[in-house]
Design a protein around this nucleic acid. Structure first.
Lengths: 233, 233
DNA sequence: ACAACGGTTCGGAAGGGACCGAAGCGTCGT
DNA sequence: ACGACGCTTCGGTCCCTTCCGAACCGTTGT
């Protein structure tokens, strides 16, 4: 009515259970076909197709036609961030999906959110990087310091994806931890590193990332938490 | 379907234009009566009453009965944060409400978001506090350092509201800046300070906060931006 | 060429939600 | 005590959305 962006159009799209399930399934950043998404939404293919075209039209999803398949994925990291923020709200209000199982607990530990890592371990990594001064808030958002770059490079993280990017890292609200974790190209690089180094592995087709005992030790050693970094007032 | 919180129920509530308008009107953190909210939503009183009771039931709003009035307000800061994150999405996708006027530009400069300050100036304050080391990420979230406490106290900010609070400050995504600004009790204290010190004033009944020229100078002096705090890689 | 396959478009049916008018209920003024 | 006021509840109408089956289109494989 008065001013500001129109929330309702986008919220209404997310508000349908079928579409919400599709969006949740796409939260790992990978692209799924219309048929697969119809499956997760629990609707017929024509219905799913209608939903998908509407979400593409609204800018929530993007399509890539490949042969006779059409791959849908989230339009960007900001979509994933908004979804996580809604999850955080729903979680706090006790709105939970019907079945909660062991998978749910594993998701809280570590999961992929778009292309980066989320969950308790992701928050730890972020906190450690902040405490170390590897990333800090600068004039153009969250920035990686030169010490941080050296540290990550020494660890073996592939930073080539960061070259020439306008925004190197961003923050994303973690629904299970209700804290910030690292997103953006640097977040992607860290998820790749965690998987490539064998610290953790993706569990099946889900968003769950399972850390191996060895990897957990390595993570705690590489990303220590300085308990006395600041006073709580 | 599978795991995680159920987004769709909450998103569906926000997805109705009338309800979205009500929520937007409540973004300044103040409580409005059912009649006033019916006005901003553009619906009759019975309709508004139905909407409001549903949102209370879902935990988005809370009511306070006062005489023959019933005051509705957002249930918490996390609701405001989720709404701002949706605004950020909608803004980026070009979903704008019909009329955009001078008020809109003023909103980008400075506005209240729940009980704290948002907009370009709010982001500046946050960045300055981060660069100065006044607030930093600790083990239990965003924390105020003892130097930060001294600095703010010396400035004249009333920190009495922070005593005994579990979380002293939080981050909130700014829809116009697409950056983080300061929320939580400290954010509230800073908004109070900015208004009490005469740096700025609330414009009518809107969320707009207008800075006086003198206040703007004072803000820039008190919260400098160190352009060379960190390298951009 | 032909059939199988993945996907979209079109049609109509069914369900749910938004909406308002009228009535009811508690509170405030006089 | 009485009416005015703010709000909620109830009942019924109406529209919008969701949904699927059938038909259609382009690609793949044989």
């Amino acid at each position: 009515m008065r001013d500001g962006p129109d929330i309702s159009a986008i919220a209404a799209l997310i508000g349908d259970p079928g579409r919400a399930n599709m969006l949740s399934a796409l939260m790992d950043g990978r692209a799924l076909t219309a048929g697969e998404l119809a499956g997760v939404a629990g609707v017929s293919l024509p219905t799913a197709s209608g939903h998908l075209s509407r979400m593409v039209g609204a800018g929530l999803l993007v399509v890539a036609a490949q042969g006779r398949h059409r791959y849908y994925r989230l339009a960007g990291e900001d979509v994933a961030a908004a979804l996580e923020s809604l999850m955080s709200l729903a979680e706090a209000r006790g709105h939970r999906r019907v079945r909660t199982g062991p998978r749910d607990a594993a998701m809280r530990e570590a999961r992929s959110c778009y292309r980066h890592l989320a969950g308790a371990h992701a928050v730890r990594i972020y906190d450690s990087l902040r405490a170390r001064g590897a990333v800090a808030v600068g004039v153009s958002g969250l920035e990686v310091s030169s010490e941080g770059r050296r540290f990550l490079d020494g660890l073996g993280v592939d930073l080539s994806g960061l070259a020439g990017r306008r925004v190197v890292c961003r923050e994303c609200l973690d629904w299970s931890e209700r804290r910030m974790h690292l997103a953006g190209p640097l977040g992607t690089a860290l998820l790749d590193y965690v998987l490539a180094s064998g610290w953790a592995e993706r569990v099946g087709d889900s968003r769950v990332i399972r850390f191996r005992p060895r990897g957990l030790k390595a993570l705690e050693a590489a990303f220590p938490l300085d308990k006395d970094a600041s006073a709580t007032v």
